[in-house]
Nucleic acid binder design. Structure first.
Lengths: 214, 214
DNA sequence: GTCTATAACCGGATAGAC
DNA sequence: GTCTATCCGGTTATAGAC
């Protein structure tokens, strides 16, 4: 059952990752973490100085390789990837991540406005967004920069919601989706998002179109 | 500037709504709230007993009328609404809500897995979801129940992300979207989501399709 | 209904022995 | 590097005067 004994630092990171994802950053105390990791309370401050820098360490340990994978998948799709390939490169690495506890953690990171959105986004995510934005521009040249901005965030939102709600989704339906097949979700999502990215441009408010019809 | 003097209870609700949306539930203390509301600390416990039941009161005060509006818009779209009408009824009332501070509050509610997702969702949101699911089934009969489930949550995720990220979105782009035109966002979102709802069904994993092409 | 004062507790962080 | 013990500020909640 127990693998090679992990170092204290790694045990803290693993425990924090699990509890942060499950209960949130602010609602998880260092005491919760050290209890879960079975290490001493003071070890956290010795290895990570403050709670905030522990949070950053927990996030960056996972986010960096995941974003690298996204870039690699997009690169592997060639010069002019289809919207399906773009969507899959953006979504699959995060949805299908096979490390336990990571999906809800990343979901929390991406749905917290002030806390990290700025501090993590600008530093770690901006290049990824720029790269995917360029790919979308090439795949759907009719889109204006504003339209690409919105659609890229619609795609990100659909993904974030899945990551964050992963564990509670089965409770929201009577359908037999326990446990969720992540490959199937990616395929559904790629299909949905690709159609959205290719959607005709907005001309008039839909409300006005409805009025004209009557 | 100051309107008719509000009651203590209302001032607490307003202050809590603002701070919960801005900083989160757990990270907002009752002291923060009473300072913002300019009422005494003990007034919170007198009117709401505990912090948790204050949170519920803050949420339900806004969520109930918003969900009623969504239902009314869907009803107003007639017997068999188009996917555009379904999307607009689902999205517009929340995105275009004109009460200050409510958008980020609702965004936080919808992106918190455990905290309320179950306790609020099952009680307050389940009928709404059921109603929209039926409408989607009528508008796109080819979809299986599972596919409707996923696509409905993709739509919800795109919306939630917009609500939660509202105030920080301008920091994530160099485009001139300050302050965000919410009507325009709804139109963009309806277009995106409607295309996603109408997307062709998933047959094979996109990865396999890519392999076949080479 | 509204206030002051305080109880009772929990949080992050650190000092200092080993 | 790891432990125990502790500091200290902030938290919810309540008792009791007005």
């Amino acid at each position: 059952m127990t693998a090679a004994p992990l170092g204290t630092k790694t045990r803290i990171l693993d425990a924090a990752e699990k509890l942060f994802g499950k209960n949130g950053f602010e609602e998880t105390s260092l005491r919760d973490i050290t209890a879960e990791a079975q290490v001493n309370l003071a070890a956290v401050n010795y290895h990570f100085q403050t709670k905030e820098s522990l949070i950053d360490a927990v996030i960056l340990r996972r986010l960096e390789p995941l974003n690298r994978k996204r870039m690699e998948m997009l690169d592997a799709a060639g010069e002019t990837p289809s919207v399906e390939q773009i969507a899959e490169a953006f979504l699959a690495p995060l949805i299908e991540v096979d490390i336990p506890n990571v999906a809800p953690l990343v979901g929390r990171v991406f749905s917290n406005p002030a806390q990290f959105a700025v501090r993590v986004f600008l530093k770690e995510l901006a290049p990824v967004v720029r790269r995917f934005d360029q790919a979308i521009a090439a795949a759907v040249p009719a889109l204006t920069p504003e339209e690409r901005f919105w659609r890229l965030h619609f795609m990100a939102g659909a993904m974030t919601h899945m990551l964050a709600m992963w564990d509670v989704l089965p409770m929201m339906t009577s359908l037999p989706i326990h446990p969720v097949d992540r490959g199937a979700v990616v395929r559904q999502m790629v299909q949905f998002v690709a159609a959205g990215l290719r959607a005709p441009l907005v001309a008039k408010p839909p409300a006005e179109l409805d009025k004209e019809r009557t």
